[in-house]
Amino acid sequence: MPLEVCGGTCMDIRSDPRNCGACGHACGAGLTCSDGQCAADGGGACAARGGGAFVTLEKCGETVKLWITNEVFVTSAEALLRGEPVSGIPVLDLQAGSDCDAQWTWHADAATASFAGATVGGCDVCPSDIERALSYYVLEVRSWCPSSPKVIAVDPR
């Protein structure tokens, strides 16, 4: 298997969505890395989900596709997508493990996503910051609260 040292860590560039085919070549949201090439993710169980929405946020030029079942959060995300003001910023409880966005090894709790008036210390970071220090963010900080995120898409299911 072709291992490459990327950022001081050995990575399998044939399957790592953050280093697909070469160090630093990240696959976009909804794409997976197969044989060193970014390709559409069939979605598996994600494609059949219902009772929520896929919300894609952009922060620091990086996208994160989230499965969200909190209707209030989805409604607020739709308002942001239309360019309308929303009170508060997203607060997403972090969980380890990939979900519907194969480029990240973490995801947000679908039911607890909310918009809050104030940030929790240390949670306004780039998605790649969470990826680089996953244990710290999941176990210590426990949430992601991106200020001024751009809503790229809301796909209700």
Rank of each mutant, 00 (worst) to 15 (best):
V64L: 15
Y136F: 15
P146W: 04
T75G: 08
L81E: 07
D12N: 11
C20V: 13
R142S: 13
L134M: 03
D12S: 00
A116E: 14
C27Y: 10
G117V: 00
G21N: 09
W106R: 09
Y136Q: 03
D155N: 14
G97A: 02
A118E: 11
P149H: 07
E78C: 01
Q103D: 00
D93V: 07
V55G: 03
E62Y: 06
L66K: 04
E71F: 01
G42F: 06
A29D: 10
V154T: 11
C38M: 11
L57K: 07
T105K: 08
G121H: 04
G21C: 08
T9W: 09
P127F: 14
V138R: 08
A118K: 11
S143M: 05
G36S: 12
I68F: 05
C10H: 08
T9Q: 09
D16M: 04
A96E: 15
K150A: 09
E58A: 13
A29Q: 10
V5N: 13
C27W: 14
S143I: 03
S87N: 15
L139C: 07
D129C: 05
D101Y: 12
E71M: 05
E71S: 12
T112I: 00
K59N: 03
I130V: 14
G28T: 15
S147C: 15
H25A: 12
D155L: 11
A108I: 06
E71D: 12
G88H: 05
G51L: 02
I130H: 02
A26L: 13
I152N: 11
G50R: 14
T32D: 00
T9E: 10
K59I: 11
G43S: 00
D35G: 00
R142C: 01
T63D: 04
L3F: 09
S143E: 07
K150T: 09
A108G: 12
A77I: 02
A113E: 01
A47D: 09
P149A: 04
G122W: 08
C126V: 01
G117R: 10
A26T: 13
L57V: 10
S135M: 02
E4A: 15
C38T: 08
A77D: 01
D129P: 04
S15C: 01
W106T: 00
A118P: 00
D109E: 10
C123S: 15
R132W: 06
P17R: 05
L94T: 05
V55F: 08
R132G: 13
G42C: 07
I13W: 03
A53K: 10
L80M: 14
T112N: 02
E131S: 12
P85R: 14
G88A: 08
L57N: 12
E140D: 14
